[in-house]
């Protein structure tokens, strides 16, 4: 299964490092990263592969969101299918 991780917030040092450290710890493979700045906000989107992930998806969602709070950004982690079904015909 693949998931899309969205990080939204003010830019700061260590956001990508903090989150990718968590992902690495749980054997989540980062496939793609894009980053853009919308108004004063920065948005980063990661596509990840969870095939070897060592914890339940729900737990990972919670852990990343908590890490996000620590870093002062909003982190949403969702199944890739949601976006594919909504935006692709």
């Amino acid at each position: 299964m693949r998931a899309v991780i969205t990080v939204i917030g003010h830019d700061d040092v260590g956001i990508i490092a903090g989150l990718s450290d968590r992902l690495g710890r749980h054997k989540v493979n980062i496939l793609e990263i894009t980053q853009s700045v919308l108004s004063e906000f920065f948005a980063m989107i990661m596509l990840v592969d969870l095939a070897r992930c060592d914890i339940e998806f729900g737990e990972l969602v919670g852990e990343l969101s908590a890490k996000g709070k620590e870093l002062g950004v909003d982190v949403h982690t969702m199944h890739e299918d949601i976006f594919n079904s909504m935006h692709r015909i």
Binding site: V4, T6, I8, E32, T34, S36, L38, A43, I45, L47, D74, H76, M78, E80, I82, F83, N84, M86, H87
Partner: peptide
């Protein structure tokens, strides 16, 4: 990969 705008639109729909 999916378009950034589309992804943010979906997140916004759910969270806000």
């Amino acid at each position: 990969m999916l378009n950034t705008f589309d992804i943010l639109e979906t997140i916004k729909m759910i969270s806000e």
